[in-house]
Each structure stands twice: as C-alpha cells, then as structure tokens.
C-alpha cells in the first residue's frame, strides 16, 4: 500500500492519452485524469496488490466519466438506446467532410462505443480487461467494438459494409 503512488505515477500518461481521445479536449481530459487520480487515491485500499493497476484505474476513469457525462447531459437529453442505433449518421457529402478528421469522427460515436474502441485499439487492453473496466460482459465488448469500427469507417468515408448484413444503409 505504501508504494501505491509510486506504482500509479507511470500509469498517468496512459490515462491522459485515453482521456484525451475520449473527450477530444485537452483541458477536459486533464480534469478527468485529475478526478480519476483523486478517486483512485481515496479508494486505493480497494486495489488488490499484484493485480493490474492500469486496468483498475481505467475502471475508475470510466466511472468518473460516466458520472460527469450523466451530470452534463442530464437536463439536455434523454439517453438513447445505442444498441439499437445501428445506422451510421452518414449521407450528405457535407456531413462526410465534417467528420473527415479522425478526432471529429470519434466524437460522433456513442460514448459507450468510443470507450470500448479506445480501450481495445488505443490502450490495447484485452477484451476481458476492457469488459472488467467497463463493467459489461465480453460479448457486449465485442458487439460494441464491431459497431464502433464500422461506424468510424463509414464516418471516415468508407462504404457501409453491406456484406455483413448488420449495418443498414439509409435510402
């Protein structure tokens, strides 16, 4: 327990990278990291020595993020059932132009898809680590990962994958 801080410091750059991709904003990202570190420090007795500290801290960051997002959008929107949200928001060339940039495209993903994609593709967590961090079954990780990738591909100008039969094109 004494060296929790020593072990946690090397994780900070990873948390910052993830937070920046997640929020798309430097300041928001560092605020998220700070909140995560504070929470992690207060809860450090809950961390089992020897288990993966990085995955544990991603779990905390996820919880902090969800709470922040929930607080931010509580008045403005109602949550969408994004599992039913198969249709990518593609269509007009103008729209495609707007999301030509990867970062902008990431913003267009539902939070839960973006989190899965970033934990797996960017942070290279195993599927089960990502499932643990997000508190969801591995099967859900797989389906969100697939949706996120497809959606991102379409947002970045690729053709929808008609062959898979999962994504439908708007007529």
């Amino acid at each position: 327990m004494e060296d929790f801080g020593t072990q946690a410091v090397p994780v900070i750059p990873r948390l910052r990278r993830y937070a920046r991709a997640l929020t798309g904003d430097r300041l928001m990202a560092d605020d998220l990291v700070q909140d995560t570190l504070e929470r992690a420090w207060m809860k450090r007795h809950l961390w089992r020595e020897g288990s993966d500290l990085r995955a544990w801290m991603f779990t905390i960051m996820h919880n902090v993020y969800v709470n922040q997002v929930r607080a931010r959008i509580a008045d403005a929107t109602i949550p969408l059932d994004t599992e039913a949200f198969n249709v990518p928001a593609c269509g007009s060339p103008v729209e495609l132009l707007e999301v030509a940039d990867l970062d902008a495209a990431l913003r267009r993903l539902p939070d839960e898809q973006r989190e899965v994609l970033l934990l797996v593709a960017l942070e290279q967590l195993s599927y089960s680590e990502a499932a643990g961090a997000l508190g969801i079954p591995v099967g859900t990780v797989m389906s969100r990962l697939f949706r996120a990738r497809e959606r991102l591909r379409v947002l970045l100008g690729g053709a929808p994958a008609a062959a898979t039969g999962v994504l439908k094109v708007i007529k």
Binding site: P13, R14, R16, R17, R20, A21, L102, D103, L117, L118, A121, L122, R149, L152, R153
Partner: peptide, 13 residues
C-alpha cells in the same frame, strides 16, 4: 484504424 488512433493520440504519452 487502430494504427491511426495510436498515431493521433500517442503524443500524449
């Protein structure tokens, strides 16, 4: 995509 994500955000490391 995986590679572009790392290219875009690895700078933070």
């Amino acid at each position: 995509q995986n590679q572009s994500l790392r290219d875009a955000y690895d700078g933070a490391l």
